[in-house]
Every structure is written in structure tokens, then in C-alpha cells.
């Protein structure tokens, strides 16, 4: 029998495919596959880390408005299993940010250069919900490649804190940061740096 993939590799492949579809169609909600392991951090978040990280990647994690240090238990757990390098924010290829208090930290991530725009980081941002029915939801209107005209993304009110840093990060396109929003239920949405975001009320 040819050993093609383990359950974790299968889950990673499904996660990668979901992220690819979400980046191709910004604003479309994807459903992440739960990784088959007991992770100390948020499960969906960890699944993305396993799908995107390997030895060549530098990762930074933030929680409660601060970057986690190299000896943080979650950082050690993740880097040991994904074989990624823990790096400071300006060197990170992937950043995992856990709450709205971390929104200002987005400014510290690399945005690439005009010569190497692909050197811009990818930020995975954990939000409350991406399908918020509440009247006080924050609604982002998205435009750009992959969107027919425009589409709306209804997030929990606290997630509104991410809008300004995301907009700042793509002010000098093609430099910028690509963002993945992930909610507590495993929904995800891709916001590549080509997507223009404006806020409107419901």
C-alpha cells in the first residue's frame, strides 16, 4: 500500500483547499476541517498553522495585544509540531492574532517590497463570528478581484477593530498583508490585499 497521506495531512490538504477557494472568492465563507489532534490553542487556527507552516516559514503569535515570546507554551507546542521557526513580527511569514486587542500589531508585520511583494505576511485573525445576524453587527463591503460587484461580510461588533489596520496594510499595493478571518465555529473568509474594504451599518 502506498503511504499517500496521514489523517493530519488529509486535513491539512482540505484546509489548504478551503483557504485557496476563500482567497479566490473574497467574502465567500469557507468551512475549515478540524485537525485530528488535541491542540492547546483554538482548533481551527491550529489547523491553518499546520496547513501553512513548515521548516521554511517564520511564525509569530499574538494574544491580548502582545506578541507571544519564544518560550510561550503555545509557541513551543506549535513550532515543535509544525517545524516552523518562531520569529519576531517584522520577519514573520505567518502571524496568528487571537483577539481585537491585537489589531494594532498588524502594522508590525512585513508588507513586502515593490520588487518582492510576495514577501508580505499572511495574518490569520480570530474573530467572534463571520455570520453575525445581530443588529449591531459590523458589516464590511468588499470589492475587488474575485467579487462580481461587491459583497458583504457581517462580523461581530468587536471585529470592527481590525478594519483600520487592514486598510492601512494595503495602502501601498502591491505591498501589503493578506488576511484570513476565522471564527469560533470554523468559518473562514479570505481578504487578499487586492480586496478593498469599506464599512457600512446594517
Amino acid at each position: 500500500m502506498v503511504p499517500m497521506s496521514t489523517p493530519l495531512e488529509t486535513a491539512c490538504r482540505a484546509t489548504f483547499r478551503t483557504l485557496l477557494a476563500c482567497f479566490a472568492r473574497p467574502g465567500t465563507l469557507g468551512r475549515l476541517v478540524a485537525p485530528p489532534l488535541a491542540a492547546p490553542g483554538p482548533g481551527w487556527w491550529t489547523g491553518i498553522a499546520f496547513a501553512l507552516l513548515d521548516q521554511t516559514q517564520g511564525v509569530a503569535l499574538a494574544h491580548a495585544g502582545r506578541w507571544r515570546s519564544a518560550d510561550d507554551p503555545l509557541v513551543r507546542w506549535l513550532t515543535l509540531r509544525c517545524h516552523a521557526r518562531h520569529v519576531s513580527a517584522p520577519q514573520a511569514q505567518l502571524a496568528l492574532l487571537a483577539d481585537p486587542a491585537c489589531a494594532p500589531l498588524l502594522d508590525e508585520l512585513p508588507q513586502g517590497s515593490l520588487t518582492y511583494p510576495e514577501a508580505g505576511a499572511t495574518a490569520v485573525v480570530l474573530v467572534g463570528t463571520l455570520a453575525c445576524p445581530a443588529a449591531d453587527a459590523t458589516v464590511w463591503q468588499l470589492r475587488g478581484p474575485g467579487i462580481a460587484a461587491h459583497c458583504d461580510l457581517a462580523l461581530d461588533a468587536a471585529a470592527g477593530a481590525w478594519l483600520a489596520p487592514i486598510q492601512r496594510s494595503r495602502a501601498h499595493y502591491p505591498r501589503g498583508i493578506d488576511v484570513v478571518l476565522v471564527d469560533q465555529d470554523g468559518r473562514c473568509a479570505g481578504l487578499p490585499r487586492t480586496t478593498r474594504i469599506t464599512e457600512r451599518g446594517l
Partner: peptide
């Protein structure tokens, strides 16, 4: 090309 680089 689809494989992660675990370690050298």
C-alpha cells in the same frame, strides 16, 4: 512540491 518541509 505539495509536501511540507519538515526538517533538514
Amino acid at each position: 512540491a505539495t509536501l511540507p518541509r519538515v526538517m533538514a
